[in-house]
Amino acid sequence: SGVNQQQLQQLMDMGFTREHAMEALLNTSTMEQATEYLLTHP
């Protein structure tokens, strides 16, 4: 699906929903950016 499943699982383990985590990974290129994205786009 174009996203790193390991990163997706890590974000879900942090408490984010699958949909939200996927959106973040699709819009960013690193785990750090994805986390930042999730925190700034709740």
Rank of each mutant, 00 (worst) to 15 (best):
V3F: 11
Q5L: 14
H20P: 05
A24Y: 01
G15H: 03
A34W: 02
T40C: 09
M12Y: 03
E23D: 08
T17F: 08
T35W: 15
Q5S: 12
L39Q: 15
A24G: 04
A34P: 00
Q7N: 14
T28C: 04
Q5N: 11
H20M: 15
L39V: 08
M31D: 02
E36D: 10
E36F: 05
E32G: 05
Q5E: 13
T35N: 05
M14W: 08
S1P: 14
L11G: 00
M22H: 08
A34H: 01
E32V: 05
G2K: 10
Q6Y: 11
A24D: 00
L39K: 15
L39W: 12
N27K: 11
Q10M: 12
H41Q: 12
Y37F: 05
E32Y: 04
Q33Y: 03
L11V: 03
E19R: 06
L8A: 03
Q10V: 12
M22A: 09
A21M: 01
E23Y: 13
L11K: 00
L38A: 08
S1W: 04
S29E: 15
P42R: 11
L26W: 07
E36G: 03
D13M: 10
Q6I: 12
H20G: 06
S1G: 14
V3S: 06
Q33F: 03
L39E: 15
S29Q: 13
F16K: 01
N27D: 03
S1L: 13
S1Q: 14
Q9S: 10
N4P: 08
L25S: 01
S29N: 12
A34Q: 01
Q33V: 02
L38M: 05
T35F: 15
Q7S: 10
A21E: 00
L8P: 00
T28Y: 06
T35E: 14
A24P: 00
T30K: 02
S29C: 06
L25I: 08
T40N: 15
T30A: 03
L38Y: 03
L38W: 05
M31W: 13
T40V: 07
Q10W: 09
Q7H: 15
R18A: 11
F16W: 09
H20F: 13
V3A: 07
L11A: 01
V3N: 06
L39M: 14
S29T: 14
E32N: 05
G2R: 06
A21Y: 00
L26C: 03
T40R: 07
L39S: 14
Q5W: 12
L11Q: 00
E32W: 05
G2P: 13
M12K: 02
N4S: 11
M14F: 06
L38T: 02
L39G: 12
A21S: 10
L8G: 00
A34T: 02
L39D: 12
H20D: 09
Q33A: 13
T40A: 14
Q5G: 10
L38F: 04
L38I: 06
G15S: 03
Q33K: 06
T17R: 11
E32D: 09
P42A: 15
A21W: 01
E32F: 04
G2M: 14
N27Q: 09
S1N: 14
L11P: 00
M14Q: 06
E36P: 04
T28S: 07
D13G: 11
M31H: 04
T40K: 09
M31R: 02
T28A: 05
V3M: 08
T30G: 05
L25A: 02
L39T: 14
E19F: 09
L38N: 02
M31Q: 04
M22T: 14
T17K: 15
L8W: 04
T35K: 15
M12P: 00
Y37S: 06
G2T: 13
N27I: 09
Q6N: 12
Q7R: 07
L8K: 00
F16S: 03
S1E: 13
D13F: 06
T40W: 07
Q7E: 11
L26P: 00
L8I: 07
E19S: 09
T40I: 07
M12E: 06
Q6K: 11
A24V: 02
M31V: 10
L11T: 00
M14G: 04
T40H: 11
Q6H: 13
G15Q: 03
L25N: 00
L25T: 02
V3W: 11
M22Y: 11
F16Y: 13
P42Y: 15
V3C: 04
S29W: 06
E36L: 08
M31P: 04
Q33E: 15
M22P: 00
P42H: 15
E23T: 11
D13V: 06
E36M: 07
M31A: 03
Q7T: 07
M22D: 02
R18H: 09
M31S: 02
Q33G: 08
E36K: 06
Q6C: 08
Y37N: 05
V3D: 06
M14T: 04
Q9C: 07
T40E: 10
L39A: 15
A34Y: 02
R18I: 10
H20R: 14
T35Y: 15
A24T: 01
G15M: 03
M31E: 02
N4L: 11
M22K: 07
E36N: 06
M31N: 02
T40P: 04
E19V: 08
Q9G: 08
V3I: 13
T17N: 15
M22Q: 08
M12I: 12
S29G: 08
T40M: 12
E19M: 07
Q7I: 09
T28D: 01
T28V: 04
Q9N: 11
P42L: 15
Q6A: 14
M22S: 08
H20K: 12
V3T: 08
P42M: 15
A34N: 01
Q5K: 14
Q9F: 09
Q33W: 03
N27M: 13
V3Y: 10
V3L: 10
T28G: 03
M14S: 05
E23W: 11
L26E: 09
Q6L: 13
A24L: 01
M14A: 06
E36V: 05
M12F: 03
D13E: 12
